[in-house]
């Protein structure tokens, strides 16, 4: 029951945080610039957490996450701009199509392991991007002009649901099955875990929420272009997950928040920003390859939960 208390406590905390920010926005304390950073932060958290379930939990090395984000972005944009559907429906459409894309990519490629899987996912993401580049219906290389519909409420809801679903999944027998695949695939198989099934499930859930993030992203800027979703974007997402600590949900959230803020402050110095970024990446990998938190969660550091497993 103690765990349940922690859960509801964190939910309450999140809702209070949402309300405070909403009041500050309504009261004009947070201007458009800060709002936009907050929304960007939410998008990055969703991307990080949705990749965390694939790499951190299930141990499947996917480096093409931006591809699924692109699917979510484009299909939600088609829903609002071409079909005139309401934004929430569009988010759902984007997410579902992204999940289907994840399923389609996952079934053949998840037979591969390690580096080979990484390269295959990268290849799939590039193919997805090139398809959008070549379809005139969505504007080709020029991209698609989109109305700004995203706001703090949508972004926050997106993050909330993403974290909730993935944390609940992780703390169940299904999540443990996925973690056992990360730890030792052969042993997991021998213990009765249907490894292919769970890999595909994790991949599909991850793609679904990458789609949600993509949908909110698409409606936050005024235009989306295929170049946005190249492998540099995939690497960005990967960096959140790895810097935060592979296997740590709170770690990837913290890394996403931190790096969004750093990026925003350094946005006037793009070259310096990228040099610092890459240096930090190399140094962290050389001196602390498990990332910020390792597989631990921030809650375990405060002794909320009783143990150091993957708990939220």
């Amino acid at each position: 029951m103690k765990k349940s208390k922690v859960f509801w406590g964190l939910c309450l905390l999140a809702i209070i945080f949402y309300a405070v920010v909403q009041v500050m926005i309504s009261g004009g304390i947070l201007d458009m610039y800060y709002q936009s950073i907050l929304i960007q932060m939410c998008i990055n958290i969703m991307l990080a957490v949705s990749l965390h379930i694939i790499i951190g939990i299930t141990g499947q090395f996917s480096i093409g996450h931006a591809g699924f984000m692109a699917v979510g972005a484009y299909f939600s944009a088609i829903a609002t701009m071409k079909l005139g559907l309401p934004f929430p429906v569009a988010i759902l459409i984007g997410a579902i199509v992204a999940a289907l894309a994840g399923l389609l990519v996952g079934i053949p490629s998840l037979r591969l392991k390690g580096d080979y899987l990484a390269i295959a996912t990268l290849g799939f993401a590039e193919i997805i991007r090139i398809i959008f580049l070549n379809v005139d219906y969505v504007g080709g290389a020029a991209g698609m002009v989109i109305t700004n519909l995203s706001n703090w409420t949508y972004a926050f809801m997106g993050v909330f649901v993403t974290i909730l679903v993935i944390a609940n999944f992780t703390n169940s027998r299904h999540g443990r099955g996925c973690i056992s695949i990360r730890e030792d695939e052969i042993a997991a198989d021998a213990m009765g875990i249907n490894t292919t099934y769970y890999k595909v499930v994790a991949f599909t859930i991850g793609s679904f929420f990458a789609g949600v993030a993509g949908a909110i992203y698409a409606h936050n800027f005024f235009i989306i272009q295929p170049t946005t979703f190249g492998f540099l974007k995939s690497f960005d997402i990967l960096i959140y997950v790895v810097l935060g600590g592979l296997g740590s949900l709170s770690g990837s959230v913290i890394a996403a928040i931190f790096l969004t803020v750093v990026s925003a402050y350094l946005s006037g110095y793009p070259e310096e920003r990228m040099i610092i970024y890459s240096l930090v990446l190399i140094i962290v990998m050389l001196y602390r390859p498990t990332g910020l938190l390792g597989t631990k969660e921030i809650t375990s550091l405060f002794k909320f939960g009783k143990r150091g497993g993957s708990k939220v």
Binding site: I179, E183, A187
Partner: peptide, 16 residues
């Protein structure tokens, strides 16, 4: 073993 899982979770995985 699943090295980074707790002793209990190791057994739970098989109990799945």
């Amino acid at each position: 073993l699943f090295k980074d899982l707790s002793v209990l979770d190791n057994v739970k995985v098989a109990n799945h």
